[in-house]
Amino acid sequence: MITLNKETIAIKREQDVVFFRNRVNEYAEKIKMGLVNKTKLLTAASELVRNMLIYAKEGKVICEIVTISALQTGIRLTFIDNGPGIADIDKAMTDGYTTGKSLGLGLPGAKRLVNIFDVKTVKGKGTTISITKWKNG
């Protein structure tokens, strides 16, 4: 996978979310991602950035345009925080499981909306979640 364009956005307050979503939107428009795929990506991003704000208070997101071939271009978002980490990742990936007050659809829902979903978490150290959505996939 080759990275074409890279940017880091800090997430500290709830208002940063709107700015962040707009940036992701611009990236998606840049590679001419279809409307449905773009909406799926933005929704997944919205879920993950909320999780970050709730559980880790702050963090950052790396936005990249990635490509694996002339035919497959996409956007990769990497959410990095230094929060408490996820205690039971298997449980966290099941529908309806939550340690907070949400519906428990955040992680499993976001996974269903994107093409590649990758979580690395260390208890007490933080969580890194990387999602990739292909332009036409």
Binding site: L35, V36, K38, T39, D95, L103, P108, R112, L113
Partner: peptide, 12 residues
């Protein structure tokens, strides 16, 4: 339409 499709995929 895009929002409806996304909500269904999300499980909502």
């Amino acid at each position: 339409p895009a929002v409806a499709i996304t909500l269904i995929e999300l499980g909502l």
